[in-house]
Design a protein around this nucleic acid. Structure first.
Lengths: 203, 203
DNA sequence: GCCTTAAGTAGCCACTGTCAACAATGTATT
DNA sequence: AATACATTGTTGACAGTGGCTACTTAAGGC
């Protein structure tokens, strides 16, 4: 991970290395409460070196959160089916990818949606965060145009879809989707209800 | 808050006072990262006094989380309409009360659902936490019996409802339900979609 | 050969959870 | 009533952490 015993005095690309190391650490833990000192330790540099690249810890956290949104958007884009016949076929793989992103990167996902750091709203109105939301809006828009989705204000439908998927993701991350409560395939079941709520009953 | 200048050596009910103080602090902050020492400070006792009543900090956190579930359940019970004609009339006030509990007590709600402390699953399979979930299950059961809700495995419908409401609550807590994204009444809109997904289209 | 940049070393300062030792109070037993 | 015991506080300290800031040293470009 670090310790090339005689690595050069100058790292060369410490900024990127710090970010990568922090992302690695997020992958291993459930919370995003890593310390700058440990990031430096694992990157193989002194505990003060990161300060040459980030004014403070919050700046690093914000940068990482933005990278998280980029990756989430990429995941969703990759999951988008080429030619979906039904609304369910369109939504299911994307929603699964969304939840999978969260459960695969629980700490990162928590960081992305944690209000304290990053000044909450400001951060989420950033274009990189909004790009994720646009994926959802586009599905709904196309569905309404094609007649497979009820004609309702699209922002409200977006709220429902986002809320449900975000909620399922958080519950999954926290390990609360236990069969005793929500059955053996809670995500699929929840998506069914969502699809039936969004879908045009006439078709 | 504290400092009756000559209060007796023995507090009398410090256990309760510590819990109350901690709940007060949770009400003021967004995160649940209070320190035991500050709880003691604000309760007007020495920093080690709480250890006479709680083996460690985690025990206090667990106790508080359980109280949170009790209060949430009470909120929901109080919001349950006497005689609801439609499924929407039945669900809406309870869902609103749920989300309101979260936005009124963001730190407490976060604590209740934070995985790290309390050993996650174990805690949520506790009867006091499950009691909240039962409120939801009962609505669904009654709705199916009355024919207002589609006949589907009830655990799956519970997953959808819980996921959506939990998600909306978290988004609201984090201040992300901004009109630019989700319109002006996102909760109502989301509930509409949920009701239409749960509801029996035949009626 | 100078200057900027990027790294290292050292340390400050504040703070935390927890424990041990001691003090005050209340309660039960003789 | 007197004494012993248990409970519940206080004080003080330990060990560790963590963000951040100086100041120093190495490397590279001009």
């Amino acid at each position: 991970m670090q310790d090339a015993p005689n690595r050069p005095y100058h790292h060369g690309d410490l900024r990127r290395a710090v970010i990568e190391t922090a992302l690695d650490m997020l992958r291993e833990e459930k919370g995003w409460q890593f310390t700058l000192r440990e990031v430096a330790r694992r990157a193989g540099v002194s505990h003060a070196a990161p300060y040459k690249h980030f004014p403070d810890k919050a700046a690093l956290l914000a940068e990482i959160a933005m990278i998280g949104f980029d990756r989430l958007r990429a995941s969703l884009a990759a999951a988008k089916p080429k030619a979906a016949k039904t609304l369910r076929d369109e939504i299911t793989p994307i929603a699964r990818a969304y939840v999978a992103f969260g459960t695969d990167n629980p700490a990162l996902y928590r960081l992305m949606f944690s209000a304290e750091e990053g000044k909450a709203v400001g951060m989420h109105l950033n274009e990189r965060a909004l790009a994720v939301f646009d994926v959802l809006l586009e599905i709904l828009r196309r569905g309404q145009a094609a007649g497979s989705i009820r004609k309702r204000p699209i922002e409200g439908q977006a709220a429902a879809a986002w809320g449900l998927v975000h909620g399922m993701t958080m519950l999954a991350i926290d390990g609360l989707l236990v069969p005793e409560k929500v059955g053996s395939a809670p995500l699929d079941a929840a998506l069914s209800t969502l699809v039936e709520g969004l879908g045009n009953p006439a078709t």
